[in-house]
């Protein structure tokens, strides 16, 4: 029985305890109220407490069983690029417009794949941007401006 074998369950337990505490502690800053007149804090406080208990149980049973298995590799580059793509799109689509925001986001995302070179990635970004504009703006008539205020759209 080693910590290494149980780390999956220990970490999972820690994540749940963390969320449970965060919600429960924040909930106490709202009015908790009584059973008859429940305040906004009541439900999250109760659930947060339950989540902490569950997190502890997961960690303890995991520690006793010690059979979590390997966590495996994490594709850090892909992870960062994909999240960057999404956050970029979200923060710029209003001001830059759909076309530039999407183009950059897709370009970032396509570099998350292995051994992707610049030219094919550019090609994917151009093709997907064009396709999305066709589908969402022309076919589905979503009112998204192609170029935003920053680009004079």
């Amino acid at each position: 029985m080693t910590l290494r074998d149980a780390r999956k369950d220990l970490l999972a337990g820690a994540v749940f305890i963390g969320f449970g505490l965060a919600f429960a502690v924040t909930a106490t800053t709202y009015e908790v109220g009584t059973l008859l007149r429940m305040g906004p804090g009541f439900f999250p406080l109760a659930l947060g407490g339950i989540l902490v208990v569950l997190g502890v149980l997961i960690a303890v049973t995991g520690f006793l069983a010690a059979s979590g298995g390997e966590i495996g590799t994490v594709p850090w580059r892909a992870l960062v690029l994909l999240l960057a793509a999404i956050l970029f799109f979200g923060s710029t689509v209003r001001d830059l417009g759909l076309v530039p925001a999407l183009f950059v986001a897709v370009l970032l995302a396509s570099f998350a794949g292995r051994g992707v070179r610049l030219v094919p990635a550019l090609f994917i970004a151009v093709a997907l941007t064009a396709l999305s504009v066709l589908i969402f703006v022309y076919a589905l008539q979503l009112r998204l401006s192609l170029l935003g205020p920053w680009l004079g759209g």
């Binding site: 799109f89 979200g90 923060s91 689509v93 999407l102 794949g113 997907l128 941007t129 999305s132 998204l144």
Partner: peptide
């Protein structure tokens, strides 16, 4: 697959944003 996943990212981002035009909905995906 290198074609497929950027498409999923693109459609997910546009679809979610178009719901309320709220950037926080897109951040929430991340």
């Amino acid at each position: 697959y290198r074609w497929l996943f950027p498409a999923i990212i693109a459609f997910a981002a546009i679809g979610t944003y178009s719901l309320n035009r709220n950037p926080y909905d897109v951040y929430a995906i991340a």
